[in-house]
C-alpha cells in the first residue's frame, strides 16, 4: 500500500513528465495497434482465400457408390485433409445452374447430364501449401475410379507466395514497430526516473533499502504502461470505428482479437515495469560504485 501511495505521489511530483511519458507510450502503442489491425485483416483475408483451396477428383461414370464411401473414409483419415465432400452428378448440375445462370437454358435443354460426380477435398490450416496440395492430389489419383484431378496448381503457388511475403513483411515491420515501442517506453520511463535521480540519491544516503526505492518506481512503470495501453486501445478503437463509418468498403473490417488486445496492454505494463527496474537499478548502482 505504501509503495502504491509513493508511486501515485511520483505522478504528483512530476506531472508534466508523467503525462509526456504516458503520451509517448500511448503513441507508440497506437502505432502498434494500427499495424496489428492491418496485419490481422490482411492475414484474415488471405486465410479466407486459402480456405477455398481444394483438390477435386472427378469420378468415372461406372463407379459404385460403396466404392466412393470407402474412399471418402480413407481420405478423411489423412492428416492434411479436413473434409471430403461428395458432389453427385445431379448436385453438380444444380451447382452449375446456380453459379452460371447465363447457361441455365442450355442445361435445361440437355437430355443427359454431362457433368461428372466429384470428390472435393478441403485441407486443414497449415496444409494449404503447394506441397500438401500435390500430395493430396496424388492420394486421389491412386483411386481407379478417379478420372481426373484438378486443384489450380499455379493459383495455389501464387497464394502461398503472397502468404509468405505478407508474413515476412508483417514480421519485419511488426518487429521494427515493437522495438521502437519498447525503446520509446523504456526511454520515457528512464527520463522520468532520471528527473528524480537526486531523490533516489538522497534516499540511499539516508539509508533506504533498495527495494524501498525500487518498488514505487516499478509500480509507477506498471501504471504508466497500463494507462498508456488503455489510452492506445481507446484511440485504436476510435480509428477503427471512424474507418468503418467513413468508408463503406471497410464495413467488414475486423477488430483485433481479444487475446491481442489483452496481450498488448499487459505487455505495455510489463515493459513499463521492466524499464523501471532497469533504470532504477542503474541509478541505485551509482551509490555503490566500487
Amino acid at each position: 500500500m505504501r509503495h502504491l501511495r509513493e508511486a501515485l505521489a511520483g505522478f504528483r511530483r512530476t506531472p508534466l513528465l508523467s503525462t509526456l511519458s504516458i503520451s509517448a507510450i500511448s503513441l507508440s502503442l497506437v502505432i502498434m495497434g494500427l499495424f496489428g489491425l492491418s496485419a490481422h485483416n490482411i492475414g484474415s483475408a488471405i486465410s479466407d482465400i486459402e480456405r477455398r483451396v481444394e483438390v477435386v477428383g472427378y469420378l468415372l461414370e461406372d463407379m459404385k457408390p460403396d466404392q466412393v464411401q470407402i474412399a471418402q473414409q480413407e481420405l478423411e483419415a489423412f492428416p492434411e485433409i479436413e473434409e471430403v465432400l461428395y458432389v453427385s452428378k445431379k448436385e453438380a448440375l444444380a451447382n452449375a445452374q446456380r453459379d452460371l445462370p447465363e447457361f441455365s437454358e442450355i442445361y435445361e435443354e440437355l437430355r443427359v447430364n454431362p457433368l461428372p460426380a466429384s470428390l472435393h477435398l478441403r485441407l486443414k490450416p497449415g496444409f494449404r501449401t503447394p506441397e500438401s496440395v500435390q500430395i493430396t492430389a496424388e492420394h486421389l489419383r491412386g483411386y481407379e475410379f478417379i478420372e481426373e484431378v484438378r486443384f489450380g496448381e499455379g493459383w495455389v503457388e501464387q497464394l502461398f507466395t503472397i502468404r509468405r511475403i505478407a508474413g515476412g513483411v508483417s514480421a519485419i515491420l511488426g518487429g521494427a514497430f515493437a522495438v521502437v515501442a519498447i525503446l520509446l517506453i523504456f526511454t520515457s520511463v528512464e527520463i522520468a526516473i532520471l528527473a528524480r535521480s537526486e531523490e533516489i540519491e538522497i534516499m540511499q544516503i539516508i539509508g533506504a533499502k533498495d527495494r524501498y526505492v525500487q518498488f514505487p518506481f516499478v509500480i509507477e512503470g506498471f501504471i504508466k504502461g497500463l494507462m498508456g495501453g488503455l489510452i492506445a486501445l481507446g484511440l485504436t478503437r476510435l480509428t477503427y470505428g471512424s474507418f468503418r463509418y467513413q468508408f463503406a468498403e471497410f464495413d467488414n473490417l475486423l477488430w483485433l482479437p481479444n487475446n491481442w488486445v489483452v496481450g498488448g496492454v499487459l505487455t505495455a505494463c510489463a515493459i513499463g515495469m521492466i524499464s523501471a527496474v532497469v533504470s532504477v537499478h542503474r541509478e541505485l548502482g551509482r551509490a555503490y560504485a566500487t
Binding site: E198, E199, E201, I202, Q204, I205, I206, G207, A208, K209, D210, Y288
Partner: peptide, 18 residues
C-alpha cells in the same frame, strides 16, 4: 549498507534538499 548509513549521517556542501 543501508543499515550502516542509518548510523552514519551525511552533510553535503550543496545541501541535496528536495
Amino acid at each position: 549498507i543501508p543499515n550502516l548509513r542509518r548510523r552514519v549521517g551525511f552533510v553535503f556542501q550543496d545541501f541535496k534538499l528536495l
